[in-house]
Structures are given as structure tokens and as C-alpha cells.
Design a protein around this nucleic acid. Structure first.
Length: 979
RNA sequence: ACCCGGGUGGCGGAACUGGUAGACGCGCAGGACUUAAAAUCCUGUUUCCCGAAACGGAAGUACGGGUUCAAUUCCCGUCCCGGGUACCA
């Protein structure tokens, strides 16, 4: 009986489906465990071997937890709204719903072959109205809520109105400090522009009230910049803009302000930081989120400008205020227009036009220093003699702080370079700490040239200056966050419609009973007028004054983990009973590319839902494991392009590509001679050989075995290659007519992103049909640590497949048939088994699946060596292995006589007694270099060890008669003799 | 530019908390079985030096420094590669 993986896998997949073994109940006496994979986007290209990596890891863990007695939720679904489907619709005229459905079918078929334990009854799709009804509903909760800074949580907006009616907003300042109330007619001179009394609130008209409330809503409307492409008449994603022009068509792209929805995530900044202490994410991940939130303590300082207005800057280093040599404000700062002098007007406008064409990323990445003087000067409040020139430059972004900085070149590298570049004189306020060659950002220097701060250590000066600034009323201490509110609208079709109607410029929500607001059918995906989305082209939609923006891709994925708990609930997004039972996602697996997007948004939504009392926990993911990317391993063939005959297809093996430099004339002549000698139809003359080119061309990795090209498959790959000649590695020729061929054609290799265009994608289906799902699953894990990125190479899969065949042969012999037996296991056999139990349990628990696979190989090799075919040993081994290779284990489990599924077996219990050792082979090092090994009892004392060491011949030889200075003996580790 | 991660044989990787660098697998080389092939099994495989071999010696974890009895592991600096940088998902 041989290992027929195709039959076995088919049989058990069908059986499992019929028996609904993966159906999960919300009602169980067992403890719960929730394993989740990051929501996949069903792309048109289908799965390649990189995608299932995380799913296999989570599947193994889910199955492992089930064996350990948990009620495990392991669901799967689709993040089905998104830009690619819409782009596909624009290009091919196929409705996104249709192509998405097709893609999902394809995905599902691929997933099913791998044998995952997903409970498909719980599948969700974000583009399904049954799902996005609740996305819209949650949006409305955010729309109807505000963040109470006193209680530090989201509350219904009705609370806020009550507060306003009682106290005005004196205790609840408007989050956006730039916001200005309409002028107060009663006390126009003294009115603070952002505070109002209860009386005044009551006197506001509806429109003013609504625009003030909008300033507090967690989901609010404002204005923001988008990538506007006049040529395409549309707004582009950052991805679609390359070097300031559109990816499609190459039209210029500029920034344009459009009305946008936002989520007030900045109000949650502190709680998002605090929450990181309570969740098990990697330090790197926490650091990335912390840096993204970017909390800093500093001061806002007002500088008077000679041109009249006041310039507000944010600085984290107020101690350096005497070192301010110039100001830099963002080119889009509202003051620029007001303060620019007539003489500088042209230069400034030109510079602003340049900056408008630049993406934020380009601006930050730019090494070349650029900027423009506005002609205006600021006055240092502590040194009124000092006139500080005001510049604009792209390196200052409008969205961060106040969009203006005070530049201190002796203490800040970027400011220093700017000053040098524009010949701005540099004031040294840190004495010998500044060498004139580079800035020194120290906080430990003693201040100099700093008026009343002279002689103070910078660190201490910060507080002194802050106090002074506040006393003088020229500024205040300020906590600042780099994070900005999340833009929450897209001028696109394929997303959730907002349940919002506009009446007289005021946004009102739809009633809950009118949800879902279904996405209407459109005939064209072209943008609407003025950069609005395609929905603006539908007369009936516009007539109802419905919002024409749609929600962004992350709307549906911000809460999907909750819907899986209660996927068919028509009354609620998720019942409190279900979310209380399942609670947090215990294990979340996905890539680091979501570090600051999805993971922050879903954390915020969870906190808001928690604040409003809809769920009982405020962090969605208890533990996060980041899976690395599987990179493609590309293969290249080298085509010789003969200028005398462009159409001729001649490929040279890697050796010759390495040997002949395409830039060296004599190399090219040698190559031409060689080719002519071997292939008579290859001709050259005195002029042409110098023009020969050698082009590396991506070749489909599926027709390359390791690095050897299947030349016949290559000729069939594309019509132009039918008559290809190959100069093989051994110098022989493979010609299209056949004959004369002996050697191999060797390809070049390179590690690149896995993508269709590089012909380096490998479809899991192909591998599953060739080796089986169990082999595929184990090989994906065997490649290396889940967290690490690594290149894919199909070649090594054979080793894992051999392992499974070897396992099979412990049960069945090809000739003798059944060989497993009921004999009693020896201590030696039990030792191997329990060593393996220990290793597998530990490795699985810490997600070290690659070493677990090795441990299985070692165990099977050892049992094979000692011819152990005993059921007593093999049965627990199968249970250990079943999370990794479920099909073969289920088959053998039943062959051993079990009738219930192995999925519900219990994980073997480790018996330490089989593993106890009394001695150890200690490595003995002399001066840190291992020289010999000694077998010593584990309970040996320092003295006993020293005696043994000094009596050893090898040690004596290395001591050369000298006596050791010290003998270091670390129990159960090693011995080091210091001479 | 900024933030995060990574760099170990021909290749993927192992070494979990500073303690025998290279487990396991691929590939390669040699051998057994076979008419042959496949499958399977056995042996070897970091590099260099000495040597017939056993054995022995030296170097070695991107590069340059440092801490330590001992560094792939900790610290400082440099280079290279990957992810993210707010509308790809």
C-alpha cells in the first residue's frame, strides 16, 4: 500500500465537509480561542504561494488549540471593496461586483485545496449589503458621537448638546484649534474666537449649531487635499501617481482641496498609546505605532511679524529660542500670501507651484534643499533686535504642528543644511558643543548667547522658557501629535455609500431603518463633476441629495472580526452575547504592511464601540504575529541580440553570460565567433559584432527545474521562441530541429517581489496536485520562520514529501503491507516520542513552525532507523502531526482502528520521566576555543569538574605545563579553562 | 529623508536566556539495489593549510571597532536588502 495523497486528501476533505467538522458553536463548555487571519482582498490574479503562508500558520495553531481542548473560532472572508476591481471595471467594462464574485470563487477553490479548518458558514464579504448595512450603522454611531476629554471616552452627541445648553463649551474646547466661530455681534472686540456661552449657543442658528457640532463628531466632514489629475478628470490614489504624473497616461497631478469625511482618531491618540501596553504585539510593531502617533511635548510660540500678523510655531525645543536664525513655514500655510513682499511675490509663487506638484513623500525624501524667502521678518520675543527672515520650504508640512517651525541651525541637522545652502548666518548658542561643521542636537550643552538663559543647561532651560512664554502671554505649552485625523472618503464607486443626506449644506444621517443604503448600479465608472465620485453622475442619487463620496477600503476591515462572531444577525452588527463570549481575537496573523493603517483604525473603532457600550473590550487583538513576505525567485535566460538578424532567437547559458561582458569589444568578438562556429545561421561582420547585446529576460519559473531550463517547454512558451537555439552550459547546442544536445541550459537567478509580470509566481494548486496539500502545508512552514521574509524555491519541496512518504512507510510496507503492530514500546522509543512531544508543543506554541517540521523529520528518521512500527508510539505521533498534515494523519488514524476524527483527539501529554539524563557531554574550551569533550555527571561539583579537567590529556596538551588562571564551569552548558 | 525589520555554507535555514556555529532539508559528489529507469537506502559535503589517511591546525555568522573567561547573540559606527510613510490592500 503506497501513499496516495490525492485520493486520501479528496476523501477526507469530502468527509469533513459532510460531517461539518469545522462548524463552530458560540455555545461551548470548552474555553474559547479566536484565531484570525488578516482580511484578504480577492485580487484578480488569485493566490500565489506567498498568500497562504499566514493562513497555514494560523490553521496549524487553530488545530493545535483544538487538540488542546479549546473551542476554536477560525473564520475567513473577503475585504471585497477596493480600487483594483474598479480599475478593472474602467478598463474592461465589467461590473466590480461581477469580477469580485469571480475572484472570490477562484480564491475559495484555491483555499479549499489546502485543507484549512475555516468555518465557512461564518464567511463575510464587505461588499454584501447584509454586511455593509452594519458598516454604515457603525459609521452613524461615530457620526452621532463626540469625544469627551473630561471622561476620556466617546459619548452620544446628545450629551454634548446638553452640556452646551448648560455651560457653553468652556470645558469642552473645539478639538481643531484653528476653528473660528462666526463673529459675535454683542461683544465683537473681546470675544474669544473658539469659545461660546450657553446663551450664545442657544442663539446660534441651525446652520451654525450644526457646523459647530461637526467640529466634535467622531466622523466628520471637512476639507482635505487630494491628488487631482485634470487630464483624467479624476482623483488618484497615491499608488497611481508616479513622479508627479498619473501612472496611466502620464498626466500632471496637483493637490486639490475637496470636501472629505474624516474620523477623529486624534482624540484617541493617548488611548491608542496606552492600549499598546496591554497587548502582545512585537516591540517593532508597537514602536511603529508609537512613532506614527508621534506624541511630543513642546510649546506653541507666537512670533510677531513685521508684516503685521502673528506667526505661531510649534517647537519641542523652546530652550533654543535664542538660536533661531530663520523661520520656515509650509508653502501652503495660509499666511504665505499675506506676508510675501512684492519683491518676492514671483519667486514665492513659482516655488509654490513646484511644491503643489510634489507628493508628501517626495517632499520628505528630497535630499536637495530648496526653499524661498518670503521677504517677511519675524521678531524674536526675547530679543526684539533680532529680525528673523521667514522662508517657505517643502520640508515643512502644513499638517504637522502649526505648519511653521523656528529653525535653529546649530542644533538641528536639517536647519543647519538649509542655512548653509542659503548662506544664512548661524548663531551659536551652545559654545564648544557646536563645531561649525555639523549641527549638534544635544540637550546637555550649557546655553550661551541666550540672554536670560545664559549658563543654563538646555534640558533645564526648556521648563524655564515655557514658564516665561506663558507669563508673557506669547504662547503655551502644548502636546502635539504627528498623527492626523483619518481621511475617510473616496471619490470612487466601489465602496460603502455614506448614509448621509445633505440639506442646505448640512449633513444629516439617514434613519437606521433605512439601512443599508445600497450601492446603486452605474453605467459608467467615470468621475462626476468637480472631482466628485461616479455616484454624482446618477440623477436619482443626486436628486435625493445623498452623499456622493464612498467609504475607503479600511471601513469594512475595521470591524470584521466582530461580525465573524455573529455573522447572520439581522438585528445587530454583533450581539453582545456573542462578543462577550468570543472577546478579543486571541491570535491575529498578518503582514507588517498593515502596521499603521488597518491596525490603528480597527483599534480605534473597537475603542469607540466599547465606549458606546456595544462591546465589552477595547482592544481587538490580544496577540499579533507578523508573517513575512514570500519573495519570488526569478529566473533569467540570456538572449543574444544580433544586429544582423533581430528575429533570431539565440540564448546563452549563464556561464557564457558571466564570461562575456556586453561592454567589452573583444569579448563580443569571441562570443560572435563561438556562436558562428556552433550555429551556422548566426552571422556577423566587422561592424555588427560590436553591436551585439545580451538581454536577460524573465522566464517563467514553472518551466525551470531549479536553475535548469526545460528548453522544450521554453520553445512552446511563446510563439517567437519556437525556433530558439540554446548554447548550453557544456558548450553544446540545442537546436529547434533537435539533435546534438547533451548539456543543460542554466538560468540566472534573482530574488524579487512575487508578481505575474516577473513570471516568478507559483500557484499553490500546481504544487498541491503534484505533492498533496499536506506536503505543501509543511513545506511552506519548513521554508523558515513565519515572521521572516524569504524567497520561494519549489525545489526543496521534495524533501518534505519524502518525509511524509517515510512516515507512511512506518505503517505500511510496499511489499508486506501493514507493518504497524501492538508490541510494547521500549524506553528508548518512548524517549524519542516524548522528546518530540516536548519540542513540537514548545515550537508550535511559539510559532516556530519551521523547527517543528525539522523535529518531525528527526523523529521519523529515528523511528525508521530503529524500525519502530508500534502503535503505542505512532498513534501519539499522528496526533502531534495532525495540525501540520491533517489528511495523512486522519487516514492513518483510521487505519489504526479509530473511528472518530483525529481533529478531536487530545494532544499527547509529555512525561518528563522519559527525558531525564544523568550525564552530559560537556564541550571543554581552552581560552574560549573548544578543544575537547568530556562526559560529566550533571550533578558534578566545581571541584570534581576541575579535577577531571586537569587530568584530561587534551587539556594537558593545551596547558603546556602552565596552571590555569580560572576554570569556568556552567552547569549543563560548558566548561572554559582560562590560561 | 524618516520609522521598523533583516544580512549565517552552493541554497532555505538551525543555534530559544551570552556558552560545542552550520540541526533539518535542498543541491552536489560517490556508492548500493536494478537489464535500465524511477523509487529507496548508505557515505561525504563551511573555507583554507598540513597530510596517503586517521588526525591535527587556522579562519569564519555583511563590514569596521568595542564589552566579556566566552559574542551569530550585547554596545557604537558603516554598507546592502525588504516593509511603511497617511487614497494599493
Amino acid at each position: 500500500m503506497e501513499y496516495k495523497f490525492t485520493d486520501i486528501e479528496k476523501k477526507w476533505q469530502d468527509q469533513w465537509k459532510n460531517d461539518a467538522v469545522y462548524k463552530v458553536s458560540n455555545d461551548s463548555a470548552r474555553p474559547k480561542y479566536y484565531v484570525l487571519d488578516m482580511f484578504p482582498y480577492p485580487s484578480g490574479t488569485g493566490l500565489h504561494v506567498g498568500h497562504p503562508l499566514g493562513y497555514i500558520a494560523s490553521d496549524i495553531y487553530a488545530r493545535f488549540k483544538r487538540l488542546k481542548g479549546f473551542n476554536v473560532l477560525h473564520p475567513m472572508g473577503y475585504d471585497a471593496f477596493g480600487l483594483p476591481a474598479e480599475q478593472y471595471a474602467i478598463d474592461h467594462g465589467i461590473h466590480p461586483a461581477v469580477s469580485t464574485e469571480q475572484n472570490i470563487k477562484n480564491f475559495r477553490a484555491q483555499l479549499d485545496k489546502i485543507g484549512f479548518c475555516f468555518d465557512w458558514d461564518r464567511q463575510v464579504k464587505t461588499s454584501d449589503p447584509h454586511y455593509y448595512k452594519w458598516t454604515q450603522w457603525i459609521f452613524l454611531q461615530l457620526f452621532h458621537s463626540w469625544y469627551n476629554r473630561q471622561t476620556q471616552k466617546a459619548e452620544p452627541l446628545t450629551n454634548l448638546v446638553e452640556i452646551f445648553e448648560k455651560d457653553g463649551n468652556k470645558n469642552q474646547p473645539i478639538p481643531n484649534t484653528q476653528f473660528q466661530l462666526p463673529a459675535d455681534e454683542k461683544k465683537p472686540l473681546h470675544a474669544d474666537s473658539s469659545y461660546f456661552s450657553a446663551d450664545r449657543w442657544k442663539a446660534f442658528d441651525e446652520s451654525t449649531k450644526q457646523s459647530i457640532l461637526m467640529e466634535y463628531r467622531l466622523a466628520y466632514c471637512g476639507y482635505g487635499e487630494v491628488n487631482w489629475c485634470e487630464g483624467l478628470g479624476t482623483v488618484l490614489a497615491n499608488d497611481e501617481v508616479i513622479n508627479g504624473v498619473s501612472e496611466r497616461g502620464g498626466y500632471p497631478v496637483v493637490k486639490k482641496k475637496l470636501r472629505q469625511w474624516y474620523l477623529r482618531i486624534t482624540e484617541y491618540a493617548d488611548r491608542l498609546l496606552e492600549g499598546l501596553d496591554r497587548i502582545d504585539f512585537s516591540e517593532a510593531m508597537k514602536e511603529m505605532q508609537t512613532n506614527w502617533i508621534g506624541k511630543s511635548y513642546g510649546a506653541e510660540v507666537n512670533f510677531k511679524l513685521d508684516a503685521g500678523p502673528v506667526l505661531k510655531v510649534y517647537t519641542t525645543r523652546p530652550d533654543t529660542i535664542f538660536g533661531v536664525d530663520f523661520m520656515v513655514i509650509a508653502p501652503e500655510h495660509e499666511l504665505v500670501e499675506k506676508i510675501t513682499t512684492a519683491a518676492q511675490k514671483n519667486a514665492v509663487e513659482e516655488y509654490i507651484a513646484y511644491v503643489k506638484s510634489r507628493s508628501e513623500r517626495e517632499r520628505m525624501a528630497e535630499k536637495k534643499i530648496s526653499g524661498c524667502f518670503t521677504g517677511a521678518y519675524a521678531i524674536n520675543p526675547f530679543d526684539e533686535q533680532k529680525k528673523i527672515p521667514v522662508w517657505i520650504s517643502e520640508y515643512v508640512l502644513a499638517g504637522y504642528g502649526t505648519g511653521a517651525i523656528m529653525a535653529v541651525p546649530c542644533g538641528d541637522e536639517r536647519d543647519f543644511k538649509f542655512a548653509k545652502h542659503f548662506n544664512i548666518p548661524i548663531t551659536n548658542i551652545i559654545g564648544k558643543y557646536y563645531n561649525g561643521e555639523e549641527a549638534n542636537p544635544t540637550k546637555d550643552a550649557i546655553l550661551d548667547n541666550s540672554g536670560f538663559l545664559n549658563g543654563t543647561v538646555m534640558r533645564d532651560a526648556i521648563g524655564i522658557v515655557n514658564k516665561k512664554i506663558e507669563e508673557l502671554g506669547i504662547g503655551e505649552r502644548k502636546v502635539n501629535y504627528k498623527m492626523r485625523d483619518a481621511a475617510f472618503s473616496r471619490q470612487r464607486y466601489w465602496g460603502e455609500p455614506f448614509p448621509i443626506v445633505w440639506k442646505n449644506g448640512i449633513a444629516y444621517s439617514l434613519n437606521e431603518k433605512d439601512l443599508p443604503l445600497e450601492l446603486p448600479h452605474v453605467d459608467s465608472y467615470k468621475p462626476g463633476p468637480e472631482g466628485e465620485g461616479p455616484l454624482a453622475n446618477i440623477p436619482s442619487w443626486v436628486a435625493k441629495e445623498l452623499e456622493t463620496n464612498t467609504m475607503p477600503g479600511y471601513a469594512g476591515s475595521s470591524w470584521y472580526f466582530l461580525r465573524y462572531m455573529d455573522p447572520h444577525n439581522e438585528k445587530e452588527f454583533c450581539s453582545r452575547k456573542a462578543s462577550d463570549y468570543w472577546g478579543q481575537v486571541d491570535l491575529y496573523i498578518g503582514g507588517t504592511e498593515h502596521a499603521v493603517g488597518h491596525l490603528l483604525y480597527s483599534r480605534m473603532w473597537t475603542k469607540a464601540l466599547y465606549d458606546l457600550g456595544y462591546i465589552g473590550h477595547d482592544e481587538p487583538y490580544k496577540k499579533l504575529v507578523n508573517q513575512g513576505m514570500i519573495q519570488g525567485s526569478s529566473r533569467f535566460v540570456y538572449r543574444v541580440i544580433n544586429p544582423l538578424n533581430n528575429a533570431q532567437q539565440i540564448f546563452i547559458s549563464k556561464k557564457y553570460f558571466d564570461k562575456y561582458s556586453p561592454n567589452n569589444v573583444s569579448d563580443l568578438l569571441d562570443l560572435a565567433k563561438l556562436l558562428h562556429e556552433k550555429i551556422t545561421s548566426f552571422l556577423f561582420d566587422d561592424e555588427s559584432f560590436g553591436l551585439i547585446k545580451i538581454n536577460p529576460i524573465h522566464v517563467d519559473v514553472n518551466i525551470v527545474n531549479g536553475i535548469e531550463l526545460d528548453v522544450e517547454a521554453f520553445r512552446k512558451w511563446k510563439p517567437e521562441y519556437v525556433n530558439a537555439y540554446f548554447l548550453l552550459e557544456d558548450g553544446s547546442i540545442s537546436s529547434p530541429t533537435g539533435g546534438g544536445r547533451e548539456g543543460d541550459y542554466i538560468c540566472g537567478t534573482e530574488v524579487e517581489k512575487m508578481s505575474k509580470s516577473k513570471f516568478n509566481t507559483v500557484n499553490p494548486n500546481d504544487l498541491v496536485s503534484r505533492y498533496g496539500a499536506d506536503t505543501f502545508r509543511m513545506y511552506e512552514m519548513f521554508l523558515g520562520p513565519v515572521e521572516q521574509s524569504k524567497p520561494w524555491d519549489t525545489k526543496g519541496i521534495e524533501g518534505v514529501h519524502r518525509f511524509l512518504k517515510k512516515l507512511w512507510r512506518l505503517f505500511y510496507d510496499e511489499l508486506k503491507g501493514k507493518i504497524w503492530n501492538d508490541a510494547k514500546a521500549t524506553d528508548g522509543e518512548l524517549k524519542i516520542l516524548h522528546k518530540t512531544i516536548k519540542k513540537i508543543e514548545e515550537d508550535t506554541e511559539r510559532f516556530s513552525f519551521n523547527t517543528a517540521v525539522s523535529a518531525f523529520m528527526i523523529a521519523v528518521n529515528e523511528f525508521n532507523d530503529i524500525k519502530c512500527n508500534k502503535k503505542e508510539i505512532l498513534q501519539p505521533l499522528l496526533i502531534l502531526l495532525t495540525p501540520y498534515a491533517p489528511h495523512i494523519c486522519e487516514e492513518l488514524w483510521h487505519e489504526l482502528g479509530n473511528s472518530s476524527t483525529i481533529l478531536d483527539a487530545s494532544f499527547p501529554k509529555l512525561e518528563e520521566k522519559y527525558l531525564v539524563e544523568s550525564t552530559k557531554n560537556y564541550p571543554v574550551a581552552i581560552n574560549g576555543k573548544t578543544r575537547t569533550e568530556l562526559n560529566i555527571a550533571l550533578d558534578a561539583t566545581q571541584q570534581q569538574v576541575e579535577e577531571m579537567i586537569l587530568g584530561d590529556d587534551v587539556v594537558k596538551k593545551w596547558l603546556e605545563g602552565k596552571s590555569p588562571k580560572k576554570i569556568i564551569y556552567v552547569k549543563n552548558k560548558m566548561i572554559n579553562v582560562v590560561v
